[in-house]
Design a protein around this nucleic acid. Structure first.
Lengths: 152, 152
DNA sequence: ATACATTTAATGTAGAAACATTTATTGGCA
DNA sequence: TGCCAATAAATGTTTCTACATTAAATGTAT
């Protein structure tokens, strides 16, 4: 369905306004859809994001501040997110030898297993994007990168 | 900056995964940037969204449920959002004659004035999108619409 | 070495979001 | 008409977010 129909707005100030609204609307739509899979496993999108980053480390520990750097939402409180993962035995926390201010985090076996269960759902969602071509996907990505260049 | 650099991930499973992450990341970036303008005027993005919808009515009252239908985030609690606008004298609420369950909402002069102050900031943001062409913006919008077609 | 700014993580707090439930009204229909 | 499901909005509650503050460790300059 077109954004015009979805938010019942017939006209936009410019193609740029329309794109801005469409970006926000489509992302909320995507997050809402993915949320359904996450809820079943008692995990939030942000906790999932941290778990994915931990798995990407392939066994190597990673500091809390480095997790934040890699997150999609950099304003999130990584400390508390790690707390939640800890409480569910999805991650473990050890003090960092080289810098005693820092805290090293590693994913547990249980965390890896949860990701293995979630993987097919997420991949399924991503694959539905193939309603557009790979080239088109790459092109949108490139344009999004370009939009963000315009820093202030 | 490329999404690869921003979230420090070198490889993606597919262009579709990359696009999914880029959509979420770029929208968070955009929301965060706009938040700065909103905060100065003690308003949240969702309250702004409601105000814009109210202004779009051009003086005609609109029911709470119809506001929800037009919002970018349809899962939001419109009742409480309207409460906040009321408390700040940005909107008024009158009971609907034809259906006493419903509540009619109208923007106030003060609300219109606040939007007038915010307009240039928002337009400025949207105009920065002209780093890409109008045609490209339309094209991305069309592709985003296409992505959402894939309902479940 | 000491003082002071910086970095890292954790915590306190107010406000907002998410989700279910409640209350009032309406519409349909037996 | 009377009953019941459906709808509209408000409210209760728990959790999360945003933001500031704190506390400990480190780096740096004098």
């Amino acid at each position: 369905m077109s954004i015009e129909t979805d938010i019942k707005q017939k006209k936009f100030r410019s193609p740029y306004q329309k794109l801005a609204l469409n970006l926000v609307y489509t992302t909320k739509w995507l997050e809402y859809k993915q949320l359904e899979s996450f809820k079943e496993h008692d995990i939030t999108p942000q906790q999932y994001n941290v778990l994915r980053i931990l798995r990407g480390q392939q066994g190597n520990p990673i500091k809390v501040s480095d997790i934040t750097e890699r997150m999609l939402d950099k304003s999130s409180n990584t400390s508390r997110l790690v707390d939640k993962l800890l409480a569910k035995n999805l991650a473990k926390r050890t003090s960092c030898e080289s810098d005693r201010r820092a805290v090293d985090v590693v994913i547990t076996e249980e965390g890896l297993e949860l990701l293995k269960v979630l993987d097919p759902f997420i991949e399924d969602w991503e694959n539905r994007f193939n309603i557009i071509s790979e080239a088109e996907a790459e092109q949108i990505s490139a344009l999004l990168d370009k939009l963000r260049e315009n820093e202030d």
